[in-house]
Amino acid sequence: MPRLVLPTTALHREFLDCLDDWGPGDHEDGFGISSEMDLVSPEGFAAWVGDRLRRTHPHGTPCPPWPHGSPRWIVEDGQVLGGIVLRHLFDDRVGQIGYGVRPSARRRGLASWALGEMLVEARLALGVDRVLVPCLADNVASARTIEHVGGVLEQVRDEAHGPVRRYWVPVPA
């Protein structure tokens, strides 16, 4: 059974396995990383995880106004399968929730499940009734995931990295 967990140095090797599954370059939005970050060395990884956790209350409740909000990893049987983040500051360009599932774990419903969990957190942490969740226009799987949880397409917008679908997703009461 999958679960959402706070980032932890205890899963360093498993996190690197997840990144290897994606391959080189920048990775999925749920992790909030880029290629220039040192995630391989234990020190670099610990600094990155520590930075993410310092911006979260000890009991796991998000600590606004950090724009990266509530980071969680999707973990099952000791493997890091992906990441998801609820952003606490509204950003019209990147939306309020970003996520990604490693290639070998896709097509199992993990993204829909994790997105559903974060919608509940959005209600509790932000008190909102809907969130903006964008995805690249050519990412059909992500578009289906967002639509599966009730996302309504607002528009397709041209961005610097290509066209982006913008969905408003209702948050459960």
Rank of each mutant, 00 (worst) to 15 (best):
F45N: 00
V149Y: 05
S35V: 04
S34R: 12
A160V: 04
L89Y: 12
R107W: 05
R87L: 11
R93N: 14
R52F: 07
G32M: 09
P2T: 07
P134W: 05
Y99D: 00
V171K: 15
W66M: 00
G32Y: 07
T61W: 03
I97E: 01
G25M: 01
A160P: 04
W48T: 02
V169E: 07
E43P: 07
V152R: 01
D51V: 05
W168N: 03
P103S: 08
C135G: 01
S142L: 09
D138R: 04
V140F: 01
T145F: 15
V80H: 11
D26Y: 02
L89W: 11
M37C: 14
G116D: 14
V156H: 05
H68S: 04
R3I: 11
V94Y: 15
C63Q: 03
F31V: 05
E36A: 13
P64W: 02
V128M: 09
V80G: 10
L6N: 07
Q79E: 08
L11M: 11
D38P: 09
E14F: 02
F45R: 00
P163R: 00
P134D: 03
V156W: 03
P170S: 08
A10L: 09
G109M: 15
N139S: 04
G95Q: 06
T61M: 01
L11W: 12
P67Y: 05
V164E: 01
G150Q: 04
A160W: 03
L153P: 00
A10H: 12
F90P: 14
L16H: 03
H161V: 09
G32C: 08
V94S: 14
S112D: 14
A141H: 03
N139W: 03
E14Q: 08
A46H: 06
S142P: 09
G116L: 13
A114V: 14
H59D: 06
